[in-house]
Design a protein around this nucleic acid. Sequence first.
RNA 1: GGCGCCGUGGCCAAGUGGCUAAGGCGGCGGAUUGCAAAUCCGCUAUCCCCGGUUCGAAUCCGGGCGGCGCCUCCA
Length: 523
Amino acid sequence: MTIHIYNTLSKKKEIFEPVNPGKVGIYLCGPTVYKEAHIGHMVGPVIFDSICRYFRYNGFEVTWVVNITDVDDKLIGQSRERGIPMSQVATEMTMDYCANLLSMGVDQITHMPKATEHIDEIICFIRDLVEKGFAYDTAGDVFFDVGRNTEYGKLSNRRPDEQQGEGGGAASKKRAAGDFALWKSAKPEEPSWQSPWGPGRPGWHIECSAMSHRILGRTFDIHGGGLDLVFPHHENELAQSECCHGEAMAKYWMHNGLMRAAAAGKVGGRSDRQAPADQASEETSGQKISRSKGAGGLHELIAQQGGERIRFFLLRTHYRSTIVFDNEGLEETGAALEKFYGFFERYERITGQRFYLEVDGEETRQLIRQRQEGEIEVSQPGLLSEIKSLRDSFLGKMDDDFNSGGAVSDLFQMLSTLNKFADEKHLDISTERVDDDLADFSRAVETLRELSAILGLFLKPPAKAVAGDNDELLDQAMQLLIEMRAEARKNKDFATADRVRDGLTAIGVTLEDRSEGTNWKAD
RNA sequence: GGCGCCGUGGCCAAGUGGCUAAGGCGGCGGAUUGCAAAUCCGCUAUCCCCGGUUCGAAUCCGGGCGGCGCCUCCA
């Protein structure tokens, strides 16, 4: 059981060896909280949430940091536009972001530091860099001197002198076009903090260097983020931290693929300012999703589709590849998920046990079982040996750079195996089933639960779209209908029986006649 | 222009040197059912093209075609 990780720095898969035995420190670049999040912002958190669960499952003590950038130009812009303080914009959007994370089942994060709460550390960090000669100040602005860093460009594989110039006003103060701001002097009426270089605010990259250092130390295990952050953000962080400390910032750099929209408008808002609808959809099809292009509506999307569906959708593709987002794909995922939900209901009917653990947050963390505890002892071929080999396959795929997409297929195979077993052994019929089979079945389901929990799936019952799941009155009415229909069927009055069922189908209620009675569900 | 990624069945998607190329969605056929639903079984792939390396390539190398990302804010 060795975990391999694809490292952007070396461009290879490497064997994971923690900096400190038994511990893992992860820093994931979080959002700039100036606007509501869009679906693309969820890719990293969801995959890292599963990675985090997987490390914990393997016995590691994990510290997972996701930072909140709550000061920058865009926040200042929003604050002006809306006529409220920047801190209020940040607070609102941070709460929004966290709510989205929770509804996607992302609850493994241990720290969410804010840039504005670490100004002192940031200033110290910059002062250090200036003293060591890696940074210079020009009338209130402090820049990192890329030319002094011989290794600059090693993460994104580019040389500073080959870059196209940045241009722009601030560039004139820089010694070289590739130099970037560590500290920006305050313009009138901008939020600012006192510093040795005068009032101002931190540049974009420095907060991550300062906060990761503060929480995770000089060299930590994994630094993650979207592929679009490799340059300049991570390259600059790396340069700052390694120049300041003289040692590696992170051992493994992981970058998730970006999400693209299948067509204009579908993601929620790529507005039709591009004129003819057909044209626009042709032209923007396959474009990267981003807030500057108007993507949004994550709340609506989650409300509509359910967080688990979106999470599952994201995990079915390898984290490093591009995911094309469209509603059809999501609907398909929904159909696939239904197979699981249907089986869990079957499990509950058969065993009388609740499938869902119904816990979240801290409790989930306590509940993550250890890899060794889940080992299955088998002496002969049969259900458990099949489940065991599927489990081995699942874990093998997760060990190989967190191949959740491949791992999910083992979950599906496990599902088929279990359904087949229940069919063959007549587990649905209480008078025909055998205790030994039931015991094996339960043991096997336990494994399915163990593995799906690694992916953060099936911890809670799916949210029903139709209110009334808990509506006693509705349930009683349904029972009455079902009883009357049962009587009709008994009397071979199928016309009446079908009238009831078809009528219910028409209003979105499905009846399922089973060996031990009929049950219903609303879609 | 510089750096990089991708192209697997109708659609989505694992696999990156060697058993009959996972899995999902959809479709078709069958078992089951009074008929359905659910479930199970079966069927549905010249792995973009050309050339090379190799006993053997979807997988490695070269060339082409097509799609995309970064180089400016971006998860």
